[in-house]
Design a protein around this nucleic acid. Sequence first.
DNA 1: CAGCTGACCCGGG
DNA 2: ACCCGGGCCAGCT
Length: 111
Amino acid sequence: MADKNHSFFEDVYEVVKLIPQGRVTSYGAIANYLGSKGSARMVGWAMNAAHSLSDVPAHRVVNRIGLLSGRHHFKTPTQMQDLLEVEGIRVENDQIVDFQKYFWDPSQELL
DNA sequence: CAGCTGACCCGGG
DNA sequence: ACCCGGGCCAGCT
């Protein structure tokens, strides 16, 4: 990770790729894991750039309260919700049901 | 070239 | 308990 060949964006992608199916995490959790706690916004920006990469499941990244804040950036506004529901995660009114239950913290579970 | 914005988060009043 | 302001940093106007 200290490798300069890997940019902050690349590191974000690596973490997002490791999110298990049927689990979700938050922008802040990723930023915190990478050591840039205050750079949660950049994680969002990274997702925007990652949108072209099929390897990066951006739909598994939501904000700290489990709200689908980035749904408008997908091809269709319902794409993000659909993908999550396919993985067994219920979404009501752009809010993940039982968010804590599905939350996956990289610094906690990824060691 | 300078300033604003944003798929955010935390702490203070 | 709610509301507000500051910080973060790349990209765009």
